[in-house]
């Protein structure tokens, strides 16, 4: 019993075939754009367009309903609150804007693999690397490790909960969380050692180009292979 860790639905619709970078850029631009517009006459067609995009993905209706229930309950609350506290016009603006954004975002989420989104992210981060504030390799590793250890943490949480139940302790958050956090902290040392042992971090050359043949086996110039390995 482990959580399913992706919303991606395999398929071959037009939206599946659009490169991830375009989809994300469009989402970002339309997101910003729609907050600048207040006229329901513009936002209405936007929401319609987003709904059309989502339908073009041809996700099984039941699955679609499951994804939409939660957000639409929130949306309904927002609209009701806006009608009560503000005006019907504001409610229309806010409701249509949120609906358009939710539907469009879901359409992108359902048709884009997580790995594609992360690739785009890495491409965006790479130019920032020169500022020395961002390390694209470290971000990539962190994402991968998190995906690897979410099921692990889930599993450990249930192990601890069962152990507590067996000893007659009913899920006190304190009794659950302290052992969970301590176990995770303890394994951090070993995981870091395992990552280091497999030659992380990649040398800058390996990050940049696939073209250059690996100089891995040539004797390293004395004392200057990789400062990060010992630093």
């Amino acid at each position: 019993m482990t959580p399913r860790l992706s919303l991606y639905v395999p398929g071959d619709t037009p939206l599946h075939r659009v490169p991830a970078a375009w989809k994300l850029a469009a989402l970002l631009l339309s997101g910003v754009g729609m907050f600048l517009v207040t006229s329901p006459a513009v936002l209405g067609p936007c929401a319609g367009l987003a709904a059309g995009a989502l339908l073009s993905v041809r996700t099984p209706p039941r699955q679609l309903a499951r994804h939409l229930t939660g957000p639409f309950v929130v949306l309904a609350l927002v609209v009701v609150a806006a009608v009560v506290f503000q005006s019907a016009a504001t409610a229309a603006t806010v409701g249509l804007r949120l609906a358009a954004l939710l539907l469009a975002a879901l359409a992108v989420t359902l048709t884009t693999r997580t790995s594609e989104i992360l690739d785009v992210l890495e491409r965006v981060l790479r130019p920032l690397e020169r500022t020395r504030l961002v390390n694209a390799a470290a971000v990539g590793l962190a994402v991968s490790l998190a995906l690897r250890f979410i099921p692990e943490a889930f599993h450990r949480f249930h192990e601890i909960r069962e152990a507590q139940a067996a000893r007659g302790l009913s899920g006190s958050p304190l009794a659950l969380l302290v052992p969970l956090a301590v176990r995770m902290l303890k394994s951090a040392e070993d995981i870091a050692a395992a990552v280091d042992a497999r030659c992380y971090p990649p040398p800058p050359a390996a990050r940049r180009a696939d073209a250059a043949p690996s100089p891995a086996r040539s004797p390293a110039p004395a004392g200057r292979t990789d400062e990060e390995a010992t630093g």
Partner: peptide, 22 residues
């Protein structure tokens, strides 16, 4: 030369849960 050494010496840890990182 820790890095050059690690390319030559592989290390298999006791607990594979902590060694499989991806």
């Amino acid at each position: 030369d820790a890095r050059a050494v690690r390319e030559r010496v592989g290390f298999v840890f006791q607990n594979p849960d902590n060694q499989i990182v991806l």
